[in-house]
């Protein structure tokens, strides 16, 4: 059986499936219980599984993550929600000092099968702190995994894999495309392995690495340049850390060019890492400078300016042409 679902519905179904299959899975955070989350990702869960396993917590991000650490140590699999990824900073200490380190610190005695979910990225005309893309902050930390899906099908399969993963996973959900489109999604649980990128469009002229909401913009840009005879290969990275390096290294060996497109600021962003890897592993195959098209090194603007911040399909198309015609 399959349903046609959008991303937020697919996430909800993944939680339903896993809570049904594994009674150690618990879900909590701010407004996730009665209301079902501000984006309704956890809707109906409390009704179905009761308020012992699905509950509203006090408004305290550090304690939401900190208590999840304790729960994971004591045999549960908490899936907690940060209401927005821009609200995660009070929990930074818990994530960096403990979530990432407990396995290593205890030499494997204490492991943390837990997931921190958060709506992520800009483009929804929101207030300050509701729009940023700070995945690089977490990808830099040894011991963390960070996943960003781009389709309903992937969102469900990746979230289920994240919940089943023996290690902690940050699951950042591109909220700009939460309801942008629907896809056939199997009703039953399935996994998409973490750490594996996906080639979503095969091509021979340029490798484009992207993830999250930018995937659709890159696809639109690809259509524009295809009309001009350029054949891009698009890779949806899906897992930011640990990164599937082979996916783009092998692709660059074929295309000789790479463009990384991300919404996050440029300096020391994930694109910098991807290009370094390409330089290390595929230097002699390069026919043009590895290039990044990203958000600016600025604070994400309030709604009247956000259209300037996120790279548009037109800008992406122009950059593709620039790299190909270098």
């Amino acid at each position: 059986m399959a349903n046609t679902l959008n991303i937020v519905q697919a996430i909800n179904q993944a939680l339903m499936n896993e809570m049904e299959l594994d009674n150690t899975v618990v879900v909590y955070g701010e407004d996730v219980g009665v209301e079902g989350g501000v984006f309704r990702a956890t809707v109906e869960l409390q009704k179905k599984f009761g308020n012992t396993r699905v509950f509203d917590s006090p408004l305290a991000e550090s304690a939401i993550v900190g208590t999840a650490i304790g729960m994971a140590i004591n045999g549960l699999k908490p899936v907690v929600e940060m209401q927005f990824s821009g609200f995660v900073y009070p929990a930074f200490n818990q994530i960096i000092s403990h979530v990432a380190r407990m396995r290593n610190r205890s030499r494997g005695r204490y492991t943390l099968p837990m997931v921190i979910r958060a709506p992520y990225g800009g483009g929804i005309r929101a207030l300050e702190h509701h729009s940023e893309s700070m995945e690089a902050l977490f990808a830099h930390i040894p011991g963390l995994k960070i996943v960003i899906p781009s389709t309903p099908y992937d969102a469900k399969g990746l979230l289920i894999a994240a919940i089943r993963d023996p290690d902690p996973v940050l699951f950042w959900e591109p909220k700009r495309i939460y309801r942008a489109f629907k896809q056939e999604v199997p009703e039953e649980a399935y996994e998409i392995p973490l750490g594996k990128a996906k080639i979503i469009d095969e091509g021979t002229d340029i490798t484009i690495v992207t993830w999250g909401a930018m995937v659709r913009d890159v696809q639109k840009a690809a259509e524009m340049v295809k009309a001009k005879g350029i054949k891009p290969e698009i890779i949806d990275l899906r897992t930011i850390a640990p990164m599937d390096r082979d996916s783009f290294v092998e692709s660059v060996k074929k295309t000789g060019r790479i463009l990384v497109v991300h919404e996050a600021p440029k300096t020391l962003g994930v694109g910098a890492e991807i290009i370094s890897i390409v330089n290390e592993k595929a230097f002699l195959y390069l026919e043009a400078p590895p290039t990044r098209l990203t958000g600016f090194d600025t604070t994400f603007p309030l709604p009247r300016g956000e259209q300037h911040y996120i790279p548009s399909p037109e800008r992406i198309a122009k950059t593709i042409e620039d790299v190909v015609n270098y």
Partner: peptide, 11 residues
């Protein structure tokens, strides 16, 4: 202390 509270909540 938060880990302690979480362990106890899990109990």
């Amino acid at each position: 202390l938060q880990h302690a509270t979480g362990i106890a909540m899990a109990s």
